[in-house]
């Protein structure tokens, strides 16, 4: 898309980023008109080297160097418990650095030009304007496989109630979560700034007494998503096909991270032979489930589970069972089965 290379002339006088000319960030030769000579030594993505932005935004760049969007270490953390020590070494050399790390976002990917996904980029977010945020063009592009269309309802399910109220990604996910705080967290679950439903919806503030009672009764036992996920959501291997059979759905079961809690589960794309091409058998494949607890981005205030107790306690609709589990999955999947108790009259 040629628009990805067209700069808005009006920005040049307004924005201090342009004051020292293009070459300050992009290098190359701004005294040449010929394409080849002008582009000699040019950096397509100056912010791949965080020091480019760090000249002025020193603290942000230093923190960002340790953030999950830059390190992508969360992908390694998610899968590493399946490997032996030798397999982890192979994974780091053959898979992580060459594949997972290619997904990292640099400053410019969010603030100037969308990152290419599968070779396609949205181009400049706003004609080379340095934007603070534009979630529909940046977050949505990398997280457009499931999260963003789930949020907007573009999968055909119900849009998230927060989207319907006009909220976008950064209304919940604050910039500190992306830029980092200087700590090299290993997973998004460790980040203290990650959003929590209760920050805006604390217990005890509910309008109806019956809602207050329901929240109190399920506190610590069921996640917010467990009741408020509005409809079926996309499971990873719907796209990474060929490994196992599944269709979009809602899966309720124990959280792998806290087995006391019932929550929404999402089928992840790692199956037994995922890393076979790299020579990794995954010695401990069975120790880690194929389902992760998932913050489904399709929240509704009222669902069939909030309307009546029977949806879970009698009908047990959408609960993970041995029959509905993926075939040839990890043995640890069975630990996630949750059977709701019948209600005593």
């Amino acid at each position: 898309m040629y628009k990805g290379y067209v700069v808005d002339k009006a920005l040049l006088d307004k924005d201090p980023h342009f004051k020292a000319g293009c070459v300050l960030c992009h290098a190359g030769n701004d005294g040449e008109l010929g394409k080849e000579k002008a582009h000699l030594g040019m950096l397509k993505k100056p912010s791949d080297n965080l020091r480019s932005c760090g000249v002025c935004h020193k603290k942000v760049a230093a923190n960002y160097a340790k953030s999950l969007h830059y390190t992508t270490i969360g992908q390694r953390t998610g899968v590493m418990s399946r490997f032996s020590a030798a397999e982890l070494k192979t994974f780091d050399e053959k898979v992580f650095e060459k594949s997972c790390r290619s997904c990292h976002a640099s400053c410019g990917d969010c603030h100037v030009k969308g990152a290419p996904v599968g070779g396609i980029s949205i181009g400049l977010v706003a004609k080379h304007k340095f934007v603070k945020k534009d979630e529909g063009k940046t977050c949505a592009f990398c997280h457009g496989g499931r999260v963003y269309p789930e949020y907007t309802g573009d999968y055909g399910g119900a849009p998230d109630v927060h989207y319907q109220k006009g909220m976008l990604c950064m209304d919940c996910h604050k910039k500190e979560e992306f830029h980092g705080d200087g700590t090299a967290y290993k997973s998004k679950n460790e980040i203290p700034q990650r959003p929590a439903c209760k920050s805006c919806h604390p217990n005890g503030k509910e309008a109806k007494m019956e809602t207050q009672v329901a929240h109190r009764q399920h506190e610590g036992k069921v996640s917010c998503y467990g009741c408020h996920s509005g409809s079926a959501y996309r499971n990873c291997n719907d796209c990474h096909g060929g490994h196992a059979a599944a269709s979009p759905g809602m899966i309720l079961g124990r959280s792998p991270r806290d087995k006391k809690v019932l929550t929404t589960l999402r089928l992840i794309p790692t199956v037994r032979d995922t890393f076979a091409p790299a020579g990794i058998k995954m010695e401990h494949f069975d120790a880690v489930p194929n389902y992760w607890d998932t913050p489904a981005h399709n929240i509704k205030k009222r669902t069939d589970r909030t309307r009546k107790c029977d949806a879970c306690h009698v009908d047990r609709k959408n609960f993970l069972t041995k029959e509905t589990m993926i075939k040839n999955g990890a043995k640890a999947n069975e630990d996630l089965i949750f059977v709701p108790k019948a209600i005593k009259n």
Binding site: M1, Y2, K3, Y5, V6, V7, D8, K9, L12, G21, C22, V23, H26, G28, D30, G31, E32, L33, K35, A38
Partner: peptide, 18 residues
Amino acid sequence: PNKCIQCHTNDALMKSLH
């Protein structure tokens, strides 16, 4: 003169080169 901007602010030229 910054010759980068001579080309990169020219929509028609960028379209023809892309």
